[in-house]
């Protein structure tokens, strides 16, 4: 290493030194101690006590853990396809050179800006079984006995999914931008060949913007696995355990029961699930996603 190389190394490290300190204290150390805690009995007030795999074994015996896992998968499996259909449909509609595009874009985007707490409280009120505006409309539309949404274990999860559909603005805007990048010439030549609109959508547009779709869906899957504020504020996990989602249960274990070791092992299982899903979908995407120039 010559003098200028050494100089550059020192300068480079100096510039990123805040990040290095942050990385070690707020990422690496917590990351490693999280593994360690997951093998410990730990309640914050006393030092952690090594108990081997006991947390993991207890987790597998914990009914509520399985319920929370089921609830979370239920949410992800229903919400992700539904949100894709809704946001892609809206993006396709917006891509028809309709008047007032920027107006619609703003309208669809605004709900995503609202703080989750305010949003949850608003929907809690809209879902209110007695005085909620939603049931008022359902009655008007001829539903004789609309569900008591968040107070009914059968409808609490669907209610949270419905609310999620209201905050798709980001996906709509991203898809729209993807659609606008599709070359007109391709669509025009398809027109000449007599392609119908659905041919164009499924055989030209979708393959072309598949990288955007892939990235977006992957991100929303990762976020959906960490659903927290909505159930915490709106239902507290109930009724029954119907909205005890994974992260909510983890939070309750960690910060209500102070079983930090137990919660850490939950965090690691979540991490592994997300990691496996990500790697798996990247592998699939290499085959299915079209990465043009």
């Amino acid at each position: 290493m010559n003098k200028s190389e050494r100089n550059n190394l020192i300068k480079g490290l100096l510039f990123i030194s805040p990040w290095i300190i942050g990385f070690v204290t707020f990422v690496l150390y917590p990351f490693l101690s999280s593994i360690y805690y997951s093998f410990c009995h730990f309640n914050v007030f006393e030092p952690p006590q090594w108990i081997g795999f006991a947390n993991y074994i207890n987790l597998f015996k914990d009914k509520v853990f399985w319920i929370s896992l089921y609830n979370t998968f239920f949410y992800v499996i229903i919400f992700i396809p539904l949100s894709f259909i809704v946001s892609m449909t809206l993006a396709l509609l917006l891509n028809t050179k309709v008047k007032g595009l920027s107006f619609y874009r703003i309208i669809f985007y605004i709900p995503t800006l609202v703080p989750m707490v305010a949003l949850s409280i608003l929907w809690l009120w809209m879902f209110n079984g007695e005085y909620g505006i939603l049931n008022h409309f359902l009655i008007k539309m001829g539903v004789p006995k609309p569900p008591n949404w968040l107070a009914d274990p059968r409808y609490a999860k669907p209610a949270i999914i419905i609310m999620g559909l209201w905050t798709l603005g980001q996906a709509i805007i991203i898809y729209l931008a993807g659609l606008q990048d599709v070359p007109r010439s391709l669509l025009e030549s398809a027109d000449i060949d007599g392609a119908k609109w659905y041919h164009k959508i499924f055989h030209i547009i979708m393959p072309l913007i598949s990288p955007v779709i892939f990235f977006n869906i992957l991100m929303s899957v990762i976020i959906s696995f960490q659903l927290f504020a909505q159930p915490f504020i709106m239902t507290g996990g109930g009724p029954g355990r119907s909205t005890t989602f994974y992260l909510l249960y983890l939070y309750q274990k960690a910060f209500e029961d102070f079983r930090m070791g137990y919660a850490s092992s939950m965090a690691w299982i979540l991490f592994i699930i997300i990691l496996v899903l990500t790697l798996f979908s990247i592998k699939i995407s290499k085959k299915k996603v079209y990465y043009g120039g």
């Binding site: 707020f26 150390y29 999280s34 914050v44 991490f271 990691l275």
Partner: peptide, 19 residues
Amino acid sequence: VLATMMIPFPVTMIPLFTI
């Protein structure tokens, strides 16, 4: 730097609290 983005908040949440 990029790899740290892969770590979900729940993983570091508890140790961060103790820190």
